[in-house]
Design a protein around this nucleic acid. Structure first.
Lengths: 201, 201
DNA sequence: TCTAAAAAGCTAACCGTTAGTGTTACGGTC
DNA sequence: GACCGTAACACTAACGGTTAGCTTTTTAGA
């Protein structure tokens, strides 16, 4: 896939990184709302159109790890050890993601996000996309061609667990509490915990 | 509360209604993206600033029932018969809301929403607000000063039930399926079904 | 009738985003 | 090594949602 990047792709990645770094630095210095796109572009020494060819919106500059999150969720399902059940695998992953986001260095970034309505809104719709991908992965794990409402619901519950726990006073404890609920919800669908390929309507 | 509206408030409400009606008509006729705010204002014979004093954004024109939804959820908790448990009350309300949204007349509106990324995004963040209000109501019902992660999670599950069911092939069936999961999730928190005032950590 | 305040209006801009159109730099091929 | 197709980047100018600043109209209440 990405064996030998080549000069071209290296330059592209460098440009992208430079834009993201510049943006986060300016946002941290003077606030998200107070910094305009034209400023970010100028400071990163690129054209505005270039910025938008790397990032689909101003908010996307802040959520650079967007696709990482999405793929981590999906892989938690597809790449888990074959003996492991679905929900515990997702619980492990959410634990890790919450730990990552509540680490000391990440705090100011998430505070900025919480303070900006635009960023909060973007994050919500991002999570919604993630939930859809996860639902598809869960459906595939059950040999279903497409997600049933049950799959979609569980996927959303998992993503909700992340959002709620991240804002809780005791994030890790919250993850465990919510996953006890998810485990119970999952059990009631008819899928047996340790084995795969059960039916979920 | 709203006993004698008075001329002033009646006129204000009329202006608001005229704007909303005009907007929905134009959107239906030519598509959401193809109609600009300035057009809506002109057709409704008001100034753009007046439009924005009634609606906080272009998307808000489409989700006029925003506050209705929010209050219905909250009241499903606070105004339920005292013998009824929390989750069944919410199930009834979600059933009614889904029925309302999937009625024949409402179909074109929701198709328009599904086709516009901006509207979908707005809807998601709206639901998130509703979930927060619901979480607060649930917490109050349990005599908690503020929502615990458990309350927030259940509130989100309920709102998710609406979103998932609305897009499902068999909406009403989907509501029942998802609420079986929510019931199980709720049972595991330690709150006993028929009585109130149990503990949820 | 007079007044204070709410509601509506107008103008002009701000800012994110995109279309249209070049220009440069790179990768694969002869 | 020169060549060509294409991906990356740049520039200009605009579009469309949104808001600030300020004026005018309308209404409730004294």
């Amino acid at each position: 896939m990405t064996e030998q990047p080549g000069r071209r792709e290296r330059k592209k990645a460098a440009t992208r990184q430079k834009i993201a770094d510049t943006a986060l630095r300016l946002f941290a210095e003077r606030g998200y709302d107070a910094v305009g796109i034209r400023e970010v572009a100028a400071e990163a020494d690129v054209a505005v159109t270039t910025l938008f060819s790397h990032f689909s919106s101003k908010e996307a500059l802040v959520f650079e790890q967007d696709e990482d999150f999405e793929q981590r969720l999906v892989r938690a399902v597809t790449d888990r050890p074959s003996h492991e059940a679905l929900v515990p695998a997702l619980r492990r992953e959410i634990h890790a993601m919450v730990r990552h986001c509540t680490a000391d260095g990440a705090a100011p970034l998430w505070r900025m996000i919480e303070e900006s309505p635009a960023l909060r809104q973007y994050e919500e719709s991002m999570r919604q996309r993630h939930a859809q991908s996860l639902a598809t992965a869960i459906a595939a794990d059950l040999d279903l061609p497409q997600p049933t409402p049950t799959c979609s619901a569980i996927a959303r519950f998992v993503v909700d667990a992340f959002s709620v726990a991240r804002e809780a006073d005791a994030p890790q404890t919250a993850v465990d509490q919510i996953f006890r609920m998810i485990e119970a919800a999952w059990a009631v669908t008819g899928a047996t915990p340790p084995t795969r390929k059960s039916v979920a309507v």
